[in-house]
């Protein structure tokens, strides 16, 4: 709550002192982002994994070299300076993952023996806060039209489900992790007040990275599924394409 108070205070201070043109005086923009992201590092139903840190077991059955994840996102931005926007975003990441399950009841002394379900998905929400810096002085125009760089912080809250539509959580507790990303791109105005945003984003989800160092054979079902979620999230935030439509409201 203290952070929110600080933010509101900051926005007020910026708004009061900044000499910000915006587009015809309008500074508040709402974006609907699709963010179709190539499935480079993360599998999904019907996706192929070109780089597969999870090994062959993580590969989906169907191969599609043009596979994309789509991350719907709503972003609100306000120009607080002639070249800086402050924004918040709400997104719903959906990525594929692999869940393990025992074929028979496990006993303490047996080797781990389980099957995997390759069609599960990680679903959830992410709340983001970002600063967008426009390349005002160098090679761009008056914000919000022009080239930009963004620094994002996300808090993600996810769980795994049987499929996209399912509402039954596979884990008792949600996975809550922070993520950061750095993006570059361009905003152009298609029509009066209608913005098109295109860009790319590189990020890192702060999940435990045991899956990169530990030997998979030692994992039990719980660990296997958890690590799959971690690697899915990590891969998911590693690289994204940002495409969105925005409208300058006021």
């Amino acid at each position: 709550m203290r952070i929110i108070y600080t933010l509101v205070l900051l926005i007020n201070v910026f708004a009061a002192t900044a000499q910000v043109p915006g587009y015809m005086g309008k500074r508040f923009t709402i974006f609907a982002d699709a963010n179709p992201t190539p499935a480079f590092f993360v599998m999904n139903m019907n996706n192929t994994v070109l780089v597969n840190p999870g090994g062959d077991d993580a590969r989906t059955q169907k191969v599609n070299r043009f596979a994309f994840n789509v991350r719907p996102q709503v972003t609100l931005e306000y120009l607080i300076h002639k070249r800086v926007s402050l924004g918040v975003s709400y997104s719903m990441p959906i990525v594929g993952t692999t869940r393990a399950y025992y074929t028979s009841a496990p006993s303490e002394f047996d080797d781990v023996d389980y099957n995997t379900d390759e069609y599960d998905v990680v679903k959830g929400q992410a709340l983001g806060l970002h600063l967008k810096f426009y390349d005002f002085a160098g090679s761009a125009s008056v914000p919000p039209i022009g080239y930009y760089r963004t620094i994002n912080i996300f808090v993600t809250r996810t769980n795994t489900y049987d499929n996209k539509k399912s509402t039954t959580k596979q884990f008792r507790d949600d996975f809550i992790y922070p993520a950061v990303s750095f993006g570059v791109g361009r905003q152009s105005m298609l029509a009066k007040n209608l913005l098109l945003k295109t860009g790319v984003e590189f990020g890192w989800a702060f999940v435990p990275t045991n899956f990169l160092t530990e030997v998979e054979d030692d994992w039990n079902v719980q660990e296997y599924s958890g690590y799959s979620v971690h690697q899915s999230l990590a891969g998911y935030y590693l690289f994204n394409i940002n495409i969105g439509l925005g409208y300058i409201l006021f």
Partner: peptide, 10 residues
């Protein structure tokens, strides 16, 4: 674009 010119003039 029309909007870019408009933005610059503004």
């Amino acid at each position: 674009t029309k909007s870019l010119l408009q933005s610059n003039i503004y």
